[in-house]
Write a protein that binds this DNA or RNA. Structure first.
Length: 298
DNA sequence: CTTAGGG
DNA sequence: CCCTAAG
């Protein structure tokens, strides 16, 4: 009974922030259970995390008067939004002889959890930037024998690039993918368990998208009507959601979030509805597809 | 048992 | 931090 009134250390706050970034606000038990943060938050309970988060959300709001800042709510909305968009990703299946059906990956009621969806969003929105970092590292290191994953990871980190806690894992899988696409060349060294990679001719042609940040959410992308008569724009919702999530993640909790333009928030709420519409439309399409029907997205 | 909110 | 209602 000696440890009550424990002051939060910087490490603990950092862990909490990272945890929220990864699992989302409200997932405190998950954050606590995640081995990534378990150590730093060893002496904290899920309820402690909640309280701390609440405090962090209000602390920066000492400005002059009673500017009601409800960071958690804003964040939660964005999370939901992003999760929905990510969960309802429609992937056209163009495998040779198979029928032109579409595969609908969704989480919601099935396998994936919201947290996972969020992680996917984070990765998705940064994928282009990560590719840029990878090419940057490879061109800088320029080793004819190739560069191993660890070296690439270290280089990127030294460039003080912001990367998620699970970036290492993402990196290796990303490299494999790029190699598979021929955008990178994989060099296998018998002496090492790790794979080595180097750039090839194709790599340069790929560099165009590099630091492409998410486009601004422009009011009215072309609305397209599907065979169901529903008028929804997959791209619009996804882009807007990802952009929104992007901003929030960059702003990273605390004070910065308070700066989010209100217009953005309002737009997100509206888009939320669109995202839900899309989810419903997606379900319908999925059903039709399962029945052998052909569904065109455009 | 976990979360949100008020105390 | 604690307590409690609610899922």
């Amino acid at each position: 009974m000696g440890n009550q009134k424990l002051k939060w250390t910087a490490e603990e706050e950092e862990a909490l922030l990272a945890g929220v970034r990864k699992h989302g606000p409200g997932k405190w038990k998950n954050i606590l259970r995640d081995p990534e943060f378990a150590d730093q938050l060893a002496s904290r309970s899920n309820i402690d995390l909640k309280d701390k988060w609440r405090n962090l959300s209000v602390a920066p709001g000492i400005q002059g008067s009673k500017d009601k800042i409800r960071t958690p709510r804003i964040k939660a909305a964005a999370f939901h939004l992003a999760a929905v968009a990510a969960a309802a990703t429609i992937t056209p299946t163009t495998s040779g002889n198979s029928s032109p059906v579409a595969t609908l990956h969704r989480s919601g009621s099935s396998d994936m959890s919201i947290d996972d969806s969020y992680s996917i969003v984070v990765d998705a929105k940064n994928a282009p930037r990560y590719d840029g970092m990878i090419f940057e590292a490879l061109s800088a290191l320029a080793d004819a024998n190739g560069t191993d994953v660890s070296a690439i990871f270290n280089f990127i980190e030294q460039q003080k690039h912001e990367v998620p806690p699970n970036f290492r894992r993402f990196l290796s899988s990303r490299l494999r993918r790029l190699a598979a696409q021929g955008k990178l060349e994989k060099v296998s060294h018998l002496k090492s368990t790790q794979n080595f990679y180097k750039m090839n001719d194709h790599s340069l042609g790929t560099r165009t998208i590099h630091v492409a940040r998410p486009k601004e959410v422009n009011a009215k992308p072309h609305r397209q009507t599907n065979s169901q008569g529903s008028s929804v724009s997959h791209e619009m919702v996804c882009e807007a959601s990802i952009t929104a999530a992007y901003k929030l993640v960059e702003a990273d909790s605390a004070s910065d979030v308070a700066r989010l333009a209100q217009e953005d928030v309002e737009r997100m709420i509206i888009l939320q509805g669109h995202a839900d519409e899309m989810l419903i439309a997606a379900r319908e399409m999925h059903q039709l597809c399962c029945q052998g029907n052909i569904v065109l997205l455009n």
